[in-house]
Design a protein around this nucleic acid. Structure first.
Lengths: 81, 81
DNA sequence: GTTCCTTTTGCGGCATAGCGTAAATAAAAG
DNA sequence: CTTTTATTTACGCTATGCCGCAAAAGGAAC
């Protein structure tokens, strides 16, 4: 899974793929975050107007965290081994 | 540098540290992003209401990108070598 | 002290996120 | 196919981001 993101579209895609990998629906995320399903939908579809708080809530629900890395920076160890 | 972030405060801190490491001012970022200095300030101080577009613009100006990784996930290769 | 640069805070304004609710599509299951 | 579930879109609403602009506060150097 490539979870590198420089755009809202890439973040939305990564969140949707992670959610599906967990076997969850947008409704499940909604229940865990108190965000509306419509808000999750908008985020997954790449709305750059989404608030940081919303992104972080969904990330937390999915068990994800951010790493801020240099563009073209070090590879993740799992990309090698 | 630990650039792992789960909160707006951690993202703001990481952005500020990266900016300083580049020897730049908030005004420099402002010029590169067309965001106000006040907006950069707010973001660096951990305002979770900041829009994703704003975060991404500052990240791009700093030459950074996101990686979405599992909490407690794989280490960055530079943490080993 | 003063000067200079940087960061933070405040104001009025416009644009829009996220809310509740609901309906309309889309996709999956039977 | 029909039924069920999932996702998207729309309405009116309140809250707030970001804007320009400005002033205040903080920090470093002299």
């Amino acid at each position: 899974m490539n979870l590198t993101a420089r755009t809202a579209e890439q973040i939305g895609e990564a969140l949707r793929r992670t959610r599906k990998a967990r076997g969850w629906t947008q409704s499940d995320i909604s229940a865990r975050t108190n965000l509306r399903v419509a808000t999750i939908s908008s985020l997954e579809n790449g709305d750059a107007g989404t608030k940081l708080a919303t992104v972080l809530a969904v990330m937390a629900a999915l068990g994800l965290e951010f790493r801020l890395v240099e563009r073209g920076g070090s590879l993740d160890i799992e990309d090698i081994f």
